[in-house]
Lab assay of single mutants.
Amino acid sequence: GKMTGIVKWFNADKGFGFITPDDGSKDVFVHFSAIQNDGYKSSDEGQKVSFTIESGAKGPAAGNVTSL
Score class of each variant (00 low, 15 high):
G1F: 08
G1W: 06
G1P: 13
G1V: 14
G1M: 11
G1C: 13
G1R: 13
K2N: 08
K2H: 10
K2V: 12
K2Y: 12
K2E: 07
K2A: 09
K2W: 10
M3E: 04
M3P: 03
M3H: 10
M3A: 06
M3C: 11
M3V: 09
M3F: 10
T4P: 01
T4I: 08
T4H: 07
T4F: 08
T4W: 04
T4V: 08
G5L: 05
G5P: 00
G5I: 04
G5D: 01
G5K: 00
I6E: 05
I6A: 05
I6P: 00
I6F: 10
I6W: 09
I6R: 11
V7E: 03
V7R: 00
V7N: 02
V7Y: 03
V7S: 00
V7W: 08
V7L: 13
V7F: 07
V7P: 01
V7C: 12
K8Y: 05
K8S: 06
K8Q: 03
W9A: 01
W9Y: 07
W9H: 01
W9T: 00
F10P: 03
F10Y: 09
F10W: 14
F10M: 02
F10Q: 03
F10E: 03
F10N: 01
N11V: 02
N11G: 04
N11W: 09
N11Y: 04
N11M: 02
A12W: 15
A12T: 11
A12Y: 14
A12Q: 12
A12L: 10
D13W: 11
D13C: 15
D13L: 13
D13N: 11
D13Q: 13
D13Y: 12
D13S: 13
D13G: 09
K14Y: 10
K14L: 14
K14F: 09
K14P: 02
K14I: 09
K14A: 09
K14G: 06
K14T: 07
G15N: 03
G15M: 05
G15T: 06
G15A: 03
G15L: 04
G15E: 02
G15K: 06
G15P: 00
F16Y: 14
F16N: 00
F16M: 02
F16W: 14
F16H: 02
F16P: 00
F16V: 03
G17V: 05
G17I: 05
G17M: 06
G17D: 01
F18A: 01
F18K: 01
F18C: 10
F18V: 06
F18W: 10
I19A: 00
I19N: 00
I19H: 01
I19W: 02
I19D: 00
I19L: 05
I19F: 02
I19G: 00
I19M: 01
T20Q: 10
T20L: 09
T20S: 10
T20V: 11
T20R: 12
T20K: 13
T20F: 04
T20Y: 05
P21D: 01
P21S: 04
P21H: 02
P21Y: 06
P21W: 06
P21R: 01
D22P: 01
D22E: 05
D22V: 05
D22F: 06
D22K: 02
D23N: 09
D23I: 06
D23H: 06
D23R: 02
D23L: 04
D23T: 05
D23E: 03
D23S: 06
G24D: 04
G24Q: 05
G24S: 04
G24C: 08
G24R: 03
G24V: 02
G24I: 01
S25R: 06
S25I: 03
S25P: 03
S25V: 03
S25E: 05
K26Y: 07
K26R: 12
K26W: 06
K26I: 09
K26L: 09
K26V: 10
D27P: 08
D27R: 03
D27V: 06
V28S: 00
V28H: 01
V28G: 00
V28D: 00
V28N: 00
V28E: 01
V28C: 05
F29L: 04
F29C: 06
F29R: 00
F29I: 03
F29T: 01
F29N: 02
F29G: 00
V30Q: 01
V30T: 01
V30A: 01
V30E: 03
V30C: 08
V30K: 00
V30L: 14
H31I: 05
H31T: 03
H31W: 09
H31K: 03
F32E: 09
F32I: 14
F32Q: 11
F32C: 13
F32T: 08
F32K: 13
F32P: 04
F32N: 07
F32Y: 12
S33G: 06
S33P: 06
S33N: 07
S33L: 08
S33Y: 06
S33K: 06
A34N: 09
A34W: 05
A34G: 08
A34R: 05
A34D: 08
A34C: 08
A34Q: 12
A34H: 06
A34T: 07
A34V: 09
I35M: 13
I35R: 00
Q36R: 08
Q36N: 12
Q36E: 11
N37Y: 13
N37P: 10
N37G: 14
N37C: 15
N37T: 12
N37A: 13
N37D: 13
D38S: 13
D38V: 11
D38I: 13
D38E: 12
D38H: 12
D38T: 11
D38W: 14
D38P: 13
D38M: 14
G39A: 11
G39P: 10
G39L: 12
G39H: 11
G39C: 14
G39F: 13
G39W: 14
Y40K: 10
Y40F: 14
Y40G: 11
Y40H: 11
Y40R: 10
Y40Q: 09
Y40L: 12
Y40N: 09
Y40I: 12
Y40S: 09
Y40W: 15
K41W: 15
K41S: 12
K41I: 13
K41T: 13
K41L: 14
K41P: 11
K41R: 12
S42A: 12
S42F: 15
S42H: 13
S42K: 11
S42N: 10
S42Y: 13
S42V: 13
S42R: 11
S43E: 07
S43V: 15
S43T: 15
D44E: 15
D44F: 15
D44G: 14
D44N: 15
D44H: 15
D44T: 15
D44Y: 15
D44L: 15
E45V: 15
E45S: 15
E45T: 15
E45W: 15
E45C: 15
G46V: 08
G46K: 09
G46W: 11
G46S: 07
G46H: 10
G46E: 05
G46F: 10
G46D: 05
G46Q: 07
Q47H: 12
Q47A: 12
Q47L: 11
Q47F: 10
Q47W: 14
K48C: 13
K48Q: 07
K48G: 06
K48N: 05
V49H: 00
V49I: 05
V49Y: 03
V49W: 02
V49S: 00
S50R: 07
S50I: 09
S50W: 08
S50N: 04
S50G: 05
S50D: 04
S50T: 09
S50H: 06
S50F: 07
S50E: 10
F51I: 02
F51Y: 10
F51G: 02
F51E: 02
F51D: 02
F51R: 00
T52F: 08
T52D: 07
T52M: 07
T52P: 03
T52R: 05
T52G: 03
T52N: 07
I53H: 03
I53G: 02
I53F: 06
I53W: 08
E54R: 09
E54K: 09
E54F: 11
E54G: 06
E54N: 09
E54V: 14
E54T: 12
S55R: 11
S55Q: 14
S55Y: 15
S55M: 15
S55G: 09
S55L: 14
S55F: 15
G56S: 13
G56I: 04
G56D: 08
G56W: 09
G56C: 09
G56F: 08
G56E: 07
G56P: 03
A57M: 11
A57Y: 12
A57I: 13
A57F: 12
A57S: 11
K58W: 15
K58N: 11
K58A: 09
K58E: 07
K58Q: 10
K58M: 11
G59Q: 04
G59W: 07
G59H: 05
G59F: 07
G59I: 04
P60C: 08
P60T: 10
P60L: 12
P60D: 08
P60G: 04
P60V: 11
A61L: 13
A61G: 04
A61V: 15
A61D: 02
A61M: 15
A62K: 00
A62E: 01
A62D: 01
A62R: 00
G63L: 13
G63C: 14
G63N: 11
G63H: 13
G63W: 12
G63M: 14
G63I: 14
G63F: 13
N64K: 08
N64V: 06
N64P: 02
N64F: 09
N64I: 06
N64H: 09
V65E: 01
V65F: 01
V65P: 01
V65Q: 01
V65N: 02
T66H: 10
T66I: 13
T66A: 08
T66C: 08
T66K: 12
T66Y: 06
T66W: 04
T66E: 10
T66P: 02
T66F: 05
S67V: 15
S67M: 15
S67F: 15
S67Y: 15
S67G: 09
L68T: 08
L68K: 05
L68D: 07
L68I: 13
